[in-house]
């Protein structure tokens, strides 16, 4: 078979980066014992608000808009939108102890709705496909490393030819892993997710940890939506482009066994699986089959993990359960 391996890997990485953010954010959330099924909604909000932020900055600054500022504004807008969405989720599930599954699904509906509204509103305003100026587009999607590195055969393509979000995502996952495994706060957070009553009895502020992890995790997930819109979708709002990303991210959390470092390669794998139908089409396999590949792989991993029964590979023990100190 004749296809471009470096090209495939590159496409997988680019396509996996939104997932890397979406998944890492959800890992942080789930480590606190909160199962936020609203990732899909959060990513929509991140995509729409990130684009809107960059768009308005572009409009206001006119010709002398700075690329780096635009990127930072998009990051901030997406992050805050995600924080806001997951703050609602946190309030309902942590403070009011609403059912997490139901609330998460509601957040998905809410988030996709809000995202669509903002995106379509922008489109109406511009009267057609909205997009930021070409000068700015490059600051989102262009490679950030020196040309000399990119020119290295094969490796240059596979390792050094990406936009800034790829490297930011990698750094973020590594920092998160260090946080979870090497710091006191990380230990406490894991304790909260495993057994809130134990953490509570040890004097750890369970509510604070759950709120912080869920809100920040939601923000990180939302950045994934922004990265998708601003790089893969070419800063154009398309109301179906993001759909499904969030759900794949949730599946990927399971695939990664709740470890951010696994998300590094897991997101590339899933990113690759999601575009396989474009890159290595086999004529008799319909593209729909290709699209369910990520879920099939997740199911297989689940089966293998449950067969191995290794305790470290299990989800946080209190995942999805509300905590109330005087309840027993």
């Amino acid at each position: 078979m004749n296809f471009n391996l470096a090209g495939l890997i590159k496409a997988a990485v680019l396509n996996g980066t939104p997932l890397l953010f979406g998944t890492s954010g959800e890992i942080l959330t789930e480590k606190s014992g909160n199962l936020n099924l609203g990732v899909e909604g959060l990513m929509f909000m991140g995509g729409a608000f990130g684009l809107a932020g960059a768009f308005w900055y572009d409009q206001l600054a006119g010709g002398n808009a700075s690329g780096i500022v635009a990127v930072l504004i998009a990051l901030l807008c997406a992050f805050l939108a995600g924080c806001f969405g997951s703050l609602i989720f946190s309030f309902l599930t942590i403070s009011l102890r609403a059912n997490q599954n139901v609330t998460g699904l509601a957040l998905t509906i809410f988030g996709t709705g809000v995202g669509q509204f903002v995106g379509e509103q922008l489109r109406l305003k511009v009267g057609g496909n909205i997009s930021i100026s070409n000068a700015l587009k490059g600051s989102f999607a262009n490679p950030v490393l020196p040309q000399s590195l990119q020119d290295i055969p094969f490796l240059g393509q596979v390792l050094f030819s990406y936009n800034g979000f790829v490297y930011l995502g990698i750094a973020m996952a590594i920092v998160m892993s260090l946080f979870l495994n090497r710091t006191r706060r990380g230990l406490y957070l894991k304790a909260v997710g495993e057994s809130p009553s134990t953490a509570d009895a040890a004097g750890i502020n369970v509510t604070k940890y759950k709120y912080l992890a869920t809100v920040i995790g939601g923000g990180i997930s939302a950045i994934g939506g922004m990265v998708y819109t601003m790089t893969i979708a070419g800063t154009v709002w398309n109301h179906t482009a993001l759909s499904g990303e969030g759900w794949v991210a949730v599946a990927l959390v399971i695939f990664c066994l709740w470890k951010p470092l696994n998300a590094l390669w897991g997101s590339v794998l899933f990113g690759g699986l999601m575009i396989m139908y474009l890159r290595v089409p086999v004529s008799f396999i319909p593209s729909q089959i290709y699209k369910v590949l990520p879920y099939i792989v997740t199911a297989i991993v689940l089966i293998i993990v449950s067969l191995r029964q290794k305790r470290e590979d299990q989800p946080p023990a209190s995942l999805g359960l509300p905590y109330f100190r005087e309840e027993r």
């Binding site: 230990l187 894991k190 304790a191 495993e194 009553s197 134990t198 953490a199 009895a201 305790r311």
Partner: peptide, 8 residues
């Protein structure tokens, strides 16, 4: 009921 984290 022990208050310990099993995986720690």
């Amino acid at each position: 009921h022990f208050k310990l984290i099993d995986v720690f």
